[in-house]
Amino acid sequence: MRVPISVTVNGTVYHHEVEPRLLLVYYLREVLGLTGTHIGCDTSNCGACTVMMNGLAVKSCTVLAVQANGAEILTVEGLARDGQLHPIQEGFWEEHGLQCGYCTPGMMIAALQLLQRNPDPSEAEIRHALEGNLCRCTGYQHIVNAVRYAARKMKESGAMPVGGR
C-alpha cells in the first residue's frame, strides 16, 4: 500500500506516494536526495536527524513521512539563502563548532529553534536547549560559542531567522 503525500521542503513542494512505514528522514534522504540530514541512532537520542517541521524542531527519525503530509520542512540544505550562509552556519564555521560534521545539520536546526525562542540565550540556556543533540567530537564548547556568535550576529543584522513561520 502506498499513500500519496505532498510536502514542502525548503520552499519546494513535492508530491510522492510512499509506504506508510517510511520515516521522514528516509523520505528526505532517499526519496528527495537531501542527504544533509543524518541518522545517528534509533532511539531519538542523538538528534542528528533534526529538521524543522512547521516551525518546530523534530527528530525526523521518529516522524513518518505520511505524518509530514501538508507540512513545511526546513532542512540544513535550506538554511543558506541566495548563497548567503545563515548566521548559525556562519557561527559554526567561525567558532569551529564542528569537527566530523555528522551531528552538525541537526545541531544547527536545534540551535535555530533555540534562537527563535530566545534570541539572547545564556551559556546554560544553550547547553540545556541542545540536550537532545549529541556531539562526540567537540565537547560542545565551540558549539556554545557558535550559537552565541549567531545570536550576536542575528541581533546586529536584525535578521529574522529563517523557517520561523
Binding site: T35, Y102, T104
Partner: peptide
C-alpha cells in the same frame, strides 16, 4: 584560521558513505 572543510559540512553538501 577557520576550517576549510566546513562549508560543505554546514550546508549539508558533504558526502558520507551512507549518502
Amino acid at each position: 584560521i577557520k576550517r576549510r572543510e566546513d562549508p560543505r559540512l554546514i550546508t549539508g553538501t558533504a558526502t558520507y558513505t551512507d549518502d
